[in-house]
Design a protein around this nucleic acid. Structure first.
Lengths: 217, 217, 217, 217
DNA sequence: AATGAATGAGCCTTCATTCAT
DNA sequence: GATGAATGAAGGCTCATTCAT
């Protein structure tokens, strides 16, 4: 059993900050609130991190350091054919976003990416770039003759489909109801995106799990 | 006579607030800043709107009231075949997000959608739902036999591809450089997403602009 | 009857700040203390002066603006012979320091001069230089053949004697008791410094009030 | 072996405190700053001195304990005639203030004297009184018939001339430029004050270094 | 209808201090 | 004997808000 309430003060602050920054943003969260949640004194932040801004940066770094282990294409797919790996990539990305170790981490990172700050760059470099490189390596194998610009947009189409579910869950729920949205299981979404993409790429025949359809849907 | 600088005080405040809320968020923007930008007194906001929160709600309402005219599928496509209309939908959505009448409006709405607030619901109902209904009407015509749950995910795949470019422009730029990202013209993106989607749906033959490809890319 | 408690808020703050800065110095005085004394809110300083430092500068400026009317050699001596005017200068300087309109003003100025700050320069230029120029004009008339460097030191000797009583009253009192120090009336001191100086300059014969002595004491 | 960097922790703290209190005053100097400068932990002050205030008192005591050896009239003048000894006193006082063993000590003491604190009394008693007694002993010999009150003012005139150069160097520099002020050598000032005083006292004939002048200048 | 002056709550930060080691 | 970690109080400042005009 790992610590539900870690005794390390620095970590307590980071976790409290992560939750509050994720929920309220940098301006909306106050250092008092964060320290209270961490069960510490107001001066703790200054002592451990210098000031609020550096706490924020460290919080973002910590959040992606925790998630970074799952980042990049799942290594166990290394030797498989590219079609298989593309499916693995979609599955990993969806899973990573949907049920990360700590939801606050992901929430904070998404907020961070949509409103860049000094901490954004390192997150992108350490957390996002490995995944992107993994995806484009797969696409390069799958579509070796495609001009680079086209490949870029193909990548964006794949990632865009995956990100949609995290970035726009609120809207989807408001539009179609929580029941309809929650009914979409992670597996179903993975299946859908993979088929949709394979069909789009004219690789429906290469689709790993064999189900043949007219289109992909 | 168009009002470049509207003299109506309420409107001046709404436009100033829109720009600042869009750029800095609710907590980051200050009423003083907003009033200064509107060329008015600090007390103006409280006089005209009661308090900051009500100003925010009114600002969001006003932003989507201005954008709502462009929302929904472009009416001129009304009589065309569904394939044509799907292409029109993608083009409209991308164009709407990329170069709306007032960029601040869109920026504010996007921020609002990613961080739901009391003002979110009416935005979704008035601004988003018409577009969504338009899209699903098209999809229903294109894929009449598809189970509803599948159609939902198809819709998400289409919209997800479009939204990616707005929601993740910063990340894309950090990953691939501004040059590579800016080189993707609105037309090129529209073309790509439409083909990608048609191919995915097994409707490549129905692709309106005729270019026949193996896949869609 | 002038306002003992002025209703003008800016002035109330300046007077409160003057007293506290004079007594406790810049670091020792707190804005809360100052506002309390002025019967105003903590935010008043920020509203009226921007921040503590600008309040300090304005306080110093105001303090010397109040005293500056008495600065410089008393104009009514303008036509008199230089010996008479030297006596007048000493009398004016002592009087000015000993019983100024508001003691806090002088206390603040003296503190300011011994610990230069951004506000020092203008005080020196506006408040001190006129007096200094007045003195050296007199000395130039009295001792036309004296080299400039010597004249400088003579001026310092005159001023040094006068300043001693203000700058070192505490020490004098601790050394000789309050009774002995307080017994030295303003007139007695004026008389002493004038005679001492005249005798030192070999101008004892020119001493205006005629009393002949062996030395000057 | 002299200790350029004393290893005794208490002494290290005292020297660091002396420098910082001298430069920034009691409120302006922080215990952290002092401990950093002394190369010690934040808690060192509380451990060695209890609290900041007691450190301050000890620092002032130490500063004047170090300077006290030079205090009082130079002993080697003991047997000389009073006129000679007065000259020695002026020279010693000027030299003591101008280039003391450790400039910080003197700076701290001067600051202390101008803003009395609990530590003032002992400084005055141990450091100042010996000098004052020395001076008044000389004056008693030189002017045996002078009433005490007159002698007090004569003493103040002598000391006031000397103190001027230290207490008002900033103002002098602002008024007449650094060049003019720095050009006044310690010897020149000593010479001037001595002659000025002797002439004022009608003792020009007794002036030790023989130069006969009409006045003293 | 609209404003400038003024307010109190709360912000982030820093201070001198203490405690467990 | 001495320290690094942690604390509560208080610092200056900014915020959204209100009031008299």
């Amino acid at each position: 059993m790992t610590d539900a309430k870690p005794t390390e003060p620095r970590l307590r602050l980071l976790l409290a900050a992560e939750a509050l920054f994720a929920r309220k943003g940098y301006d909306g969260a106050t250092v008092r609130e964060i320290c209270d949640r961490a069960g510490m004194n107001v001066a703790a932040i200054n002592y451990h991190f210098g000031d609020k801004e550096r706490l924020y940066i460290e919080t973002v770094r910590h959040a992606h350091a925790c998630g970074v282990s799952d980042a990049g294409p799942p290594p166990q797919l290394a030797g498989l054919p590219p079609a298989e790996r593309l499916r693995g990539f979609v599955a990993a990305m969806l899973k990573n976003m949907d049920a990360p170790v700590r939801p606050e981490s992901m929430q904070l990172l998404m907020r961070e990416l949509s409103q860049p700050s000094p901490a954004t760059i390192s997150v992108v470099e350490d957390f996002i770039r490995p995944m992107a490189m993994g995806l484009f390596a797969i696409l390069a194998e799958l579509l070796p003759d495609l001009p680079e610009r086209q490949r870029l947009m193909v990548g964006f189409s794949v990632v865009g489909q995956c990100l949609y579910y995290r970035q726009n869950r609120t809207v989807s729920t408001l539009l179609f109801g929580a029941a309809a949205v929650d009914a979409l299981s992670l597996d179903a979404i993975t299946e859908h995106i993979t088929r949709f993409t394979f069909a789009a790429l004219g690789l429906a025949g290469a689709y790993p799990t064999v189900v043949r359809t007219e289109g992909a849907v």
